[in-house]
């Protein structure tokens, strides 16, 4: 009698017409040890369904609460920076020193220009060594002559 109803349920099951409750009955039947031999091929199917129901997701999910950056604070920082800037520019501004007398200023200026020209000349004079390099490369031309003679020898 039980077997009969199970067979009927199986047919309904294969047509996709069983309700969830009826499917539960089938699952219970096939998970027991007393399965009729001619229905045995269904057993692994229902076993598999039961086994795969137990699989669980074990990985952690990093849920970060995004801290929303408040742009209002940028203006506060900007104001602070500006204030600091003004404060320091006022305190350092006068210490560079300027000349009030034009003649004195001209003297100082020409002095510093002279210094620049001196050191520039020093630098330029060392460039003269480059000539020697040119001389060296011109003597290398002799090597060509050697090559000419060797080529004549090897031809013969």
């Amino acid at each position: 009698m039980v077997l009969n109803s199970i067979e009927k349920l199986l047919e309904k099951y294969e047509n996709g017409e069983t309700s969830l409750k009826e499917e539960q009955v089938l699952k219970n039947y096939f998970s027991s040890d007393t399965v009729a031999p001619h229905l045995e091929m269904y057993k692994p199917m229902f076993d598999y369904f039961l086994v795969s129901q137990q699989e669980q997701f074990t990985k952690d999910v990093p849920l970060k609460t995004k801290t929303i950056f408040n742009y209002k604070w940028i203006s506060v920082a900007a104001v602070a920076v500006l204030m600091l800037g003004f404060y320091f520019s006022n305190s350092f501004g006068n210490e560079l020193g300027t000349y009030d007398d034009p003649e004195l200023a001209f003297n100082e200026f020409s002095k510093s220009m002279e210094m620049i020209s001196q050191s520039f000349n020093k630098g330029a004079s060392t460039v003269g060594y480059l000539d020697e390099v040119n001389k060296g490369t011109s003597t290398l031309g002799y090597l060509n002559e050697i090559e000419n003679s060797t080529s004549i020898i090897f031809k013969k």
């Binding site: 057993k43 199917m45 076993d47 598999y48 086994v51």
Partner: peptide, 9 residues
């Protein structure tokens, strides 16, 4: 046979 079912699916 249980893993067979997995393969069939």
């Amino acid at each position: 046979s249980v893993s067979w079912v997995a393969k069939i699916i």
